[in-house]
Design a binder for these strands. Structure first.
Lengths: 152, 152
DNA sequence: GGATATAGTTCAGAAAATGAAATGTCCAGA
DNA sequence: TCTGGACATTTCATTTTCTGAACTATATCC
């Protein structure tokens, strides 16, 4: 008997395992980000924005990608700007739009988040380099596809 | 020149790619769940609870795993109970605690979410069976490890 | 049995998200 | 060039969600 009460996780459909895993990992990373002492104690959306900002992005784009209203994103941008994490710059291609850019402080914070991810994946969760690489590969492929769908 | 302005995603550290991917996929799935017409329009936590409830779980356990306060989880449980998705049952092992159990309706809803994940991963995102399986494998390993850490 | 810890609930106040109306900019066509 | 409509963002009042402290009920330890 190898199933100690409701734990036969291996027999599950792969889609369900992926679903459970992604929810778990996301929540776990987000929880740890919140507790990271730094300036990550704000609303959930702030942390999503921080991760998203690999380069300057429009408020509207972020709102769409993060499933938030433009008005919500305005508030989040205000807060992050007040804390010195981002700056607003007019989009040279469309002067109605703002680009949110990470400041030096914001960039540092983002790097610390990557460091946290590193620690969690390797040390805390005990994944091998190969496992992280394999996971990263599919993750990024999924991300790029989602990006493509959102833009299309 | 293969990098059309700030898109050299392949050179990124695997931890960052994993981070970005997980945030993207989580947000994408959650967004689609919200819009799934069903009874998924409530707060974010409800959807997390729905996915978490592979078997009856205590309110306190869910609160801890989902990084919420017990009082918040009480509210969420009230709402889900009012909508007929879950039932409270006294934990036979500790009569202070409640076990949240999916009702038939709740179970159906959860299955629909799995169906959504299936559609998204395969059809929308265009992943192969092998890719989904590989992703599911590491995802679940991560999930189990997180569970272990939370329980420890 | 009695003190203390734990599981969950209640409720008032704080924080965050929503939606509609407003501002300033772009763009297509007369 | 001028004009009307579309679009990006903001503002603000309202609603929804979360927080934290006080409380009830059960468990555990001595």
């Amino acid at each position: 008997m190898n199933t100690p009460i409701g734990l036969d996780t291996d027999g599950l459909e792969p889609e369900l395992r992926a679903l459970i895993g992604v929810f778990s990992l996301y929540t776990y990373i987000d929880t740890n980000m919140r507790q990271q002492g730094d300036d990550c104690g704000g609303p959930n959306l702030e942390r999503k924005v921080l991760v998203k900002l690999d380069r300057p992005k429009r408020i509207g784009t972020l709102a769409r990608d993060l499933d938030a209203l433009p008005s919500t994103m305005t508030t989040v941008a205000d807060q992050m700007e007040a804390r010195g994490l981002i700056e607003r710059m007019r989009d040279p291609e469309d002067r109605r739009a703002w680009l949110l850019c990470l400041t030096e402080k914001g960039h540092q914070q983002r790097m610390e988040t990557v460091g946290l991810a590193h620690t969690l994946l390797h040390e805390t969760l005990g994944l091998s380099d190969d496992e992280v690489e394999a996971f990263a590969q599919i993750s990024l492929k999924i991300h790029l596809k989602i990006q493509e769908l959102n833009n299309g």
